[in-house]
Write a protein that binds this DNA or RNA. Structure first.
Lengths: 244, 244
DNA sequence: AAATATTATATTGTTAACAATTATTTTTAT
DNA sequence: ATAAAAATAATTGTTAACAATATAATATTT
């Protein structure tokens, strides 16, 4: 028997080849992250050539990534015009909160029974970081951490389908807050996450679910208030100041 | 002012141009449908050239559609090998049922309060069709109708996010049944859908949610039984018959 | 004849050129 | 100077050729 001919590709297959298959998904993740952190605001145009430069990939991969983002409602693809970060209207915003209210309280309820001590510690540490951001009035980080808290809870379920769905909803929530949220009330109420954690630790599923419900409803209500205020302000802006 | 030059494209823009922007999504829907109806079985290879012929579109659109299907877990893309209809393993199967148990009972509970008479009639008619299929031992149609029943309920919520999520879960369930389900118990129990409808009509949210929970658990349990049986059969097959 | 090696074929992955459309700038006319 | 028209540039959409890989078929060796 002869010596097996080494396949040059497999030998030097380090990180590059491992990830080469998921270029589109990596681009999608990066854009997701930028949306969550509100570095990418609604209606921002995502031109193909710029994305090619940014990520150092060919146009094909960028276009495929944009298709994926479009299918998840994070961007809108306009024919012959390009890709724009989504700008959810009132109706879409309601859909997001309805979906979150449908999923997350029940998720917490089931989680209360199954969650492990290690995961609880991780979440506890996360809440501490949120507190720091709040103390420093670091709004950007606070929005990101608030969102990631909910994703972390979903991850604790160990269910990748649920995790993916929640991440999508959280990302859209970031967009909604970016559009409609005032600077004052754009994230989860102070202490709510700690209360949630306590209820889980005490293994009180109904209480935990109730806190989650209140939390989400509060954000939703605040956004509706902000929207209402923003609309009247906008009207003034459009009509302009005094005529003198 | 001159007469505006007519744009030839817009004038004859019938069905063709209207839909031309969503070629990928239309391909995705067709493949979804084929999976739900179990015409496309797990591990079936979807070659690009054949799909091009089938749908009469270019390779680019097919490849983009395959990417979307892959991102939803309906197919697997293997590098340089092609696209294969997903074949969920035990773990993925559990994730699907856990997700359905998380979403659908709560969905029904909220639906009980909000659903309209017209939608109830539509669902009633749907159940009648299911009964017909059952009487005729038309397993293929029964699986399709059973799945569509759950999608119809999601649609009744008026929430496109929920609808999309449920459709995805139902489609995966069809795959799972295709793999693990025996011919006898591969769809929702007889009468369960009618019971569900009755509970909704009587505006009993808890009862409706409970029925849905039982229904899903029953399918899940049956699949686990079937899987167990299938495994021992497979072992015999692999080892072969007597040695004489 | 069976197993391996080699060649040929078919399929997927990528790139680059081209076509179609939109956005921008320049020109022209009032 | 302003507004419409024309020309230019930039961007997106599509196609087709090419490269890389895997599968199938053929030939070779033991």
């Amino acid at each position: 028997m002869q010596i097996v001919k080494p396949k040059t590709k497999d030998i030097n297959a380090g990180d590059q080849n491992l990830h080469k298959e998921n270029i589109e998904k990596r681009i999608v993740d990066r854009i997701f992250q930028a949306v969550i952190e509100q570095r990418l605001l609604p209606n921002t145009k995502l031109s193909e050539s710029k994305l090619c430069e940014t990520f150092g990939v060919g146009r094909m991969h960028v276009r495929r990534a944009l298709l994926l983002l479009s299918s998840q409602g994070i961007i809108n693809l306009q024919s012959n015009r390009g890709a724009f970060v989504a700008s959810p209207d009132q109706n879409q915003s309601n859909e997001v909160f309805e979906a979150r209210l449908l999923i997350e309280p029940t998720l917490i309820r089931t989680l209360t029974a199954s969650i492990q001590a290690l995961q609880l510690d991780d979440i506890s540490h996360h809440i501490h970081q949120e507190d720091l951001a709040r103390q420093n009035n670091d709004r950007t980080n606070l929005i990101r951490l608030s969102g990631e808290f909910h994703v972390k809870l979903a991850e604790a379920s160990g269910n990748t389908i649920i995790t993916k769905t929640v991440r999508q909803l959280v990302t859209k929530t970031s967009l909604i807050i970016g559009i409609y949220g005032s600077s004052s009330h754009a994230y989860c109420a102070d202490g709510a996450h700690q209360q949630l954690l306590d209820a889980i630790k005490k293994r009180k599923p109904d209480q935990a679910a109730e806190i989650m419900t209140c939390l989400l409803k509060q954000i939703w209500a605040q956004i509706n208030i902000d929207t209402h205020n923003a609309k009247s302000e906008t009207l003034d802006d459009i009509l302009g100041g005094s005529l003198s």
